[in-house]
Amino acid sequence: MKKLFLAIALMMSVLSSQAQTKSVPNQTEESDEDKSLAKDYFSQIMGVAMSATSNVKLFQFVYDWVGTPYRLGGDTKRGIDCSGFAYQLYTKVFNTAIGNNSRNIFSTVNPVSKTDLKEGDLVFFKIHSRAITHVGVYIGNGKFAHASTSKGVMISYLADPYWTRYYYKGGRLLADAPQNN
Rank of each mutant, 00 (worst) to 15 (best):
V109K: 04
V109W: 09
V109F: 05
N110H: 14
N110Y: 07
N110S: 14
N110I: 00
N110E: 09
P111W: 04
V112Y: 09
V112Q: 14
V112F: 10
V112W: 12
V112E: 00
S113M: 03
S113A: 12
S113E: 05
K114L: 11
K114Y: 10
K114P: 00
K114H: 05
K114S: 06
T115K: 15
T115E: 15
T115R: 15
T115L: 12
T115D: 15
D116L: 14
D116Q: 15
D116G: 08
L117D: 07
K118F: 04
E119D: 08
E119S: 12
E119R: 14
G120W: 13
G120F: 07
G120E: 11
G120L: 02
G120C: 12
D121F: 04
D121R: 07
D121I: 03
L122F: 13
L122R: 12
L122I: 04
L122G: 06
V123G: 00
V123T: 06
V123R: 01
F124E: 01
F124I: 02
F124G: 03
F124T: 03
F124R: 03
F124D: 00
F124C: 01
F124L: 04
F125M: 03
F125E: 01
F125A: 01
F125C: 02
F125W: 10
F125N: 02
K126V: 09
K126M: 11
I127Q: 11
I127E: 07
I127C: 09
I127W: 08
S129R: 10
S129Q: 11
S129P: 15
S129H: 13
R130L: 05
R130N: 15
A131N: 14
A131G: 02
A131E: 14
A131H: 12
A131I: 01
I132M: 07
I132H: 11
I132N: 08
I132A: 02
I132K: 13
I132W: 11
I132L: 03
T133A: 06
T133P: 08
T133R: 04
T133Q: 08
T133L: 02
T133C: 03
H134L: 01
H134K: 06
H134F: 07
H134Y: 12
H134S: 07
V135S: 05
V135P: 10
V135W: 13
V135G: 06
V135M: 03
G136P: 12
G136M: 09
G136W: 10
V137F: 13
V137L: 06
V137E: 02
V137A: 02
V137W: 03
Y138Q: 04
Y138S: 01
Y138C: 02
I139G: 07
I139S: 09
I139A: 05
G140K: 04
G140W: 05
G140Y: 11
G140P: 10
G140D: 06
G140T: 11
N141I: 00
G142I: 10
G142M: 03
G142H: 10
K143G: 06
K143D: 05
K143S: 02
K143Y: 07
F144A: 06
F144C: 03
A145Y: 09
A145V: 02
A145L: 08
A145F: 06
A145M: 08
H146M: 04
H146L: 01
H146G: 03
A147Q: 06
A147W: 14
A147E: 12
S148D: 13
S148K: 13
S148V: 04
S148I: 02
S148R: 13
T149H: 05
T149M: 09
S150Y: 09
S150G: 08
S150P: 11
S150F: 10
S150K: 15
K151V: 00
K151D: 00
